[in-house]
Simulated assay, not measured.
Amino acid sequence: MSISNEALQKLVQEIETQAVQSQQQIALVKSQMASKQREMRMLQLTSSEVSTLPPDTPVYEGVGKMFVLSPITGVDTRLKAETQELKSDVENLGKKLQYLETTYKNSREHIDQIFKNGGRG
């Protein structure tokens, strides 16, 4: 069974579009992962600095354009919670990245297979 040139061209174009979209999304996900990892590292550094302070040290957190006195334990708890949330986000982005890379790889393989077979089904 042979596929017409028109149908073959349309199929290749659709697969190529899917591959390009996957490639763009891969770049976006990698950028998001890097951003979240940087943010997580800053939170961890802040948390380690706060944990070295004596318990009675006044600590201020920025809220809009002002600073509010906060207990060290509250600040540390918030930093750890935000770090956990970012870890979860990075893990989910890693799964999404793996899916997109697989989709891209499969698209490229399909295109190669179509050209290798010359449109024969």
Rank of each mutant, 00 (worst) to 15 (best):
V75D: 07
A19P: 02
S31D: 05
M40D: 00
E16I: 05
D112M: 03
F67V: 02
V75F: 10
P55T: 15
S2T: 09
N117T: 01
S4E: 00
L53R: 00
I15L: 08
A34N: 08
G121K: 12
K10E: 07
I26T: 13
E82I: 11
S107N: 15
R41M: 09
T77K: 12
Y104F: 14
Q84D: 08
I72S: 13
D76Y: 10
G62C: 09
T103M: 02
P54R: 09
S88Q: 14
T83C: 05
D89K: 06
L86P: 00
T103H: 03
S51K: 14
T46N: 14
V90T: 07
K80W: 08
G119H: 03
H110E: 10
D112N: 05
E85K: 12
R41W: 11
R78C: 06
V68I: 06
I72A: 12
L53S: 04
D56A: 01
E91A: 11
T46F: 14
V90F: 01
E85A: 12
Q9A: 07
G74V: 05
K80Q: 11
K10N: 13
G118M: 00
T73I: 09
L93R: 02
A7M: 14
I15T: 02
K80F: 07
N106K: 00
E109R: 14
Q32V: 09
T57D: 10
E16N: 10
L100G: 03
P54D: 03
K30Y: 00
A34I: 10
N92H: 00
V63K: 11
S51F: 11
T102S: 13
T57C: 11
P71L: 08
Q32H: 14
D89I: 07
G94H: 05
R108H: 09
E61M: 10
P58Q: 04
K10W: 03
S4C: 03
